[in-house]
């Protein structure tokens, strides 16, 4: 055997043995127990302290309020949404008290009008809606209800009202096209307002022979857009014609 081979072999053997030694010394104890990772890491993660106690904890002491809330429109809004993280309070109920927010800016986080919010979600315009009055003065946060039946349609249909206001139909009242029974205000989902069912309804203004302002766009009702009712294509709260 040439002289080179045993010499090189010795060097490689030292390196390989060194690696083995390092490996047995440095690989953490629990590595590989559960998979290709340190099982002990899970223990560290699990030991992380909690900030939010969970509504179950709150219910144990604050049962009446919890029951009131559970039967209300805020039944899905758990305690710590408004009162903030309460684990510290649970651990030390007398010394540490959770926040009791009374400002308007907490409520508007959810209830300020935003077109991106789902329709039907109760929203107000914070600037015009009883400015500077605390929300809790009229609405009990644990069982919120409108104090009076809404007068304006826009109280609930903010998105429509907002769009309508900047459209060519801005001057039309809701009542021009919809008939809303009084019961709709009390029980909005059970009793619905009407929608125009006939093409001729829109034709009152838009038909070729309609007696209306000349600036209003006209169509031939017999040939245009059969067989649909107008609002199946056009959005009357924001008609596309400019």
């Amino acid at each position: 055997m040439p002289q080179q081979v045993p010499r090189l072999a010795a060097v490689f053997a030292v390196a390989v043995i060194g690696l083995f030694v390092a490996r047995s010394l440095l690989v953490p104890d629990t590595f590989g127990d559960l998979g290709h990772y340190r099982a002990a890491a899970i223990d560290t993660i699990v030991a992380h302290p909690k900030e939010y106690a969970g509504h179950q904890e709150c219910t144990m002491c604050h049962r009446p309020i919890a029951e009131q809330r559970a039967a209300s429109n805020h039944r899905g809004v758990r305690c710590e949404v408004c009162h903030g993280p309460a684990a510290a309070h649970v651990a030390n109920p007398l010394e540490i008290k959770p926040a009791v927010p009374r400002e308007r800016d907490l409520c508007v986080l959810c209830h300020a009008y935003s077109p991106s919010r789902p329709t039907g979600f109760p929203q107000i315009d914070s600037v015009t809606h009883n400015p500077r009055m605390p929300c809790a003065g009229c609405h009990e946060p644990h069982a919120p209800e409108p104090p009076v039946t809404p007068r304006e349609c826009s109280a609930c249909h903010g998105q429509i009202a907002n769009q309508l206001a900047v459209s060519h139909h801005a001057e039309l009242n809701c009542g021009t096209c919809h008939e809303a029974p009084k019961e709709h205000r009390d029980n909005p989902r059970a009793v619905r307002p009407t929608k125009p069912a006939e093409r001729s309804f829109c034709g009152t203004c838009h038909a070729a022979d309609a007696r209306s302002s000349e600036r209003i766009p006209r169509i031939d009702l017999r040939s245009h857009g059969q067989p649909y009712v107008c609002w199946q294509c056009h959005y009357p709260h924001y008609p596309e014609a400019r």
């Binding site: 590989g32 127990d33 559960l34």
Partner: peptide
């Protein structure tokens, strides 16, 4: 595939 014999592998509470 490192395998240290599973001794006290609780991995959770």
């Amino acid at each position: 595939t490192v395998s240290v014999p599973a001794a006290a592998a609780q991995g959770a509470t």
